[in-house]
Write a protein that binds this DNA or RNA. Sequence first.
DNA 1: CAAATATAAATGAACATTCATTCATTTACA
DNA 2: TGTAAATGAATGAATGTTCATTTATATTTG
Lengths: 207, 207
Amino acid sequence: MNECSFIFVPGMRIRDTHKETLVRKNAISILLRDGLDGFSMQKLAKACGISVGTLYIYYKNKEDLIVRLGIEEGKRMLQETMKGFSPDMPFAEGLKKQWENRSAYWLKNQEAAKFYEKIKRTHYAGPIQDEITKSFRPVMQAFVKNAIANKQLHFMSFESYWSVAFGPLYTLLEFENKGKSVGNRPYKFSKKTMYETLELVLKALTP
Amino acid sequence: MNECSFIFVPGMRIRDTHKETLVRKNAISILLRDGLDGFSMQKLAKACGISVGTLYIYYKNKEDLIVRLGIEEGKRMLQETMKGFSPDMPFAEGLKKQWENRSAYWLKNQEAAKFYEKIKRTHYAGPIQDEITKSFRPVMQAFVKNAIANKQLHFMSFESYWSVAFGPLYTLLEFENKGKSVGNRPYKFSKKTMYETLELVLKALTP
DNA sequence: CAAATATAAATGAACATTCATTCATTTACA
DNA sequence: TGTAAATGAATGAATGTTCATTTATATTTG
């Protein structure tokens, strides 16, 4: 059942891999500019300067295209979030690492991050989350388990923990995303606000 | 410039106000079922059992329809969130009230709440947020100001405060929304988790 | 009271676009 | 030269919106 296997055949024309990046970048920027209901295959093909038919060589259909881009970007983001992180780390240190990684990625890859956050709230989210989850759930669970065992984290329900540990960060990054916070206050994400907030979160979670 | 003013004219046929509810309910359920890109005016008209043309009597166009429904639901939700709340309340009490109101509304009006959360993340969000903001910004600002003045809340940036005060609640409600939390863990919102989380938040924010 | 009237509500067929998707054909390369 | 990549015109369904027409009703008139 390996979709990637292939039989070598002489004379096979090589697929233009540069084109995959082209499609991804244009798809993301159209989706952000025009929204999900302003996105179409013909618009995408035109933006890429390729034929509509070509899109159907790379992707089974529109849904497949959106879902696969979502999975790709989600994995990329989580990969970056986990850089230099290990579930054996002391709790405060590990959480800090994740906050730093996540926000650094967000600021460096604004389009990709906005795209992922947007697509997560559509009806395409299901298969995307399923795929992402598979890869990262074990690491995150181990981290919490260790922290509680080592008395670096209060005993509490997993959802309570997660919502306090990451809810505030996501809220700040959403503000950054819009450029505005609550009440349309102009907002620019800064390390200062981030560390200020992280400190509060650690105060809440740690003994 | 009052759009609502009208000149009384004999023989005016009365608009069927029941129909406005019909349109709103169907629009919301189509949007939740089929997503923004699965929503269309003809589909909506058919679901309501009325003519497409009628929709264009009530709403200028599709965007106007979505935006106005968003504003309506957003205002309704915030109205409920503020029930029995006053910016003069002691901080912990006021925050608790808002958490309770918001979650109660969410559980009682699941469709409306899901709709609002979804539409907030689309390109229709701008004008919706602008309108909502106007009504509730002053109250929320006064609450924080009072709390800091009375030393019931640490001095901190507004964004830091907001993200910690409400980020975790929104995260829990999103879990409830999906029926799953992180890593596809099945999740059902309960007052127990809510109060457990609120306690952590208060620990973070109050001296 | 009942018929006529005036008005806006409501209709739905019709419009030009745009949509997702297909496929016979052409192109480029190992 | 054989192969898969790439094309793009074509398809039929669906899109947002319009508008000439019909319907319902509050008021006026007889």
